[in-house]
């Protein structure tokens, strides 16, 4: 088992309404110098979260104790830019298990799925409802049900279904990763390689 399995997650959520959040914001490049996967959560959203002298910026949502939980809700086009998996690691290490947005950048989405953070893409309208519900009551809980592929706002009863391919869904439910699968078909891969022109 390569990472925690994911089934049903019920949690309050942290709202980050800004759009086009790129992975340089999620984790700036100067924090990519580790050779192990530890401690990235400390620098999640580093330059939005801390002043240059390392004091917290009061107006950033992660510094507002009212908002907490295992779900991060982001504006449209979340995770654009650099392919650094460190962005997904930082989100995981901080304590998030699910990111919700109306649109995800491809590589970021893949990276999340590969480490056990569930990216949930909802409609723009549903995203607005989630933000509104959280701003109305920060203790609003969301329920992300992976087996049924639904996300609900428990206080309002609003519910929407989301897509995930059946292979990745099974991996997430069981905590398996792609290498487990690939190692099982290694002899097929080696046969395939013999026939390639390059």
């Amino acid at each position: 088992m390569a990472y925690d399995s994911f089934n049903i997650l019920k949690s309050t959520a942290v709202p980050l309404t800004i759009e086009n959040v790129d992975t340089d914001q999620i984790i700036p490049a100067r924090f990519l110098k580790a050779t192990e996967r530890v401690g990235f959560g400390d620098n999640l959203f580093r330059d939005w979260r801390y002043n240059p002298d390392s004091t917290p910026k009061g107006d950033f949502v992660l510094n507002n104790p009212v908002y907490k939980g295992k779900i991060l809700v982001g504006g449209k086009n979340f995770g654009s830019g650099s392919s650094r998996e460190h962005a997904a690691w930082a989100i995981y290490d901080y304590g998030f298990r699910c990111v919700v947005s109306s649109f995800f950048a491809d590589i970021f989405r893949n990276n999340c799925l590969n480490i056990g953070v569930l990216p949930v893409q909802v409609s723009a309208g549903f995203l607005e409802k989630i933000f509104a519900a959280i701003y109305h009551d920060p203790d609003t809980e969301l329920e992300v049900n992976l087996p049924e592929q639904t996300i609900s706002i428990l206080s309002t009863g609003d519910k929407e279904s989301f897509d995930i391919n059946s292979y990745k869904k099974s991996n997430m439910l069981n905590g398996f990763d792609d290498i487990d699968y690939l190692l099982n078909i290694q002899s097929d891969i080696e046969e395939f390689a013999k026939k390639l022109p390059l």
Binding site: S83, R84, E85, H86, A88, I107, N110, N111, N114, I115, D177, D178, I179, L182
Partner: peptide, 9 residues
């Protein structure tokens, strides 16, 4: 471009 999990793959 790929992530580090894929580099390992």
């Amino acid at each position: 471009g790929i992530g580090t999990s894929e580099v390992e793959m």
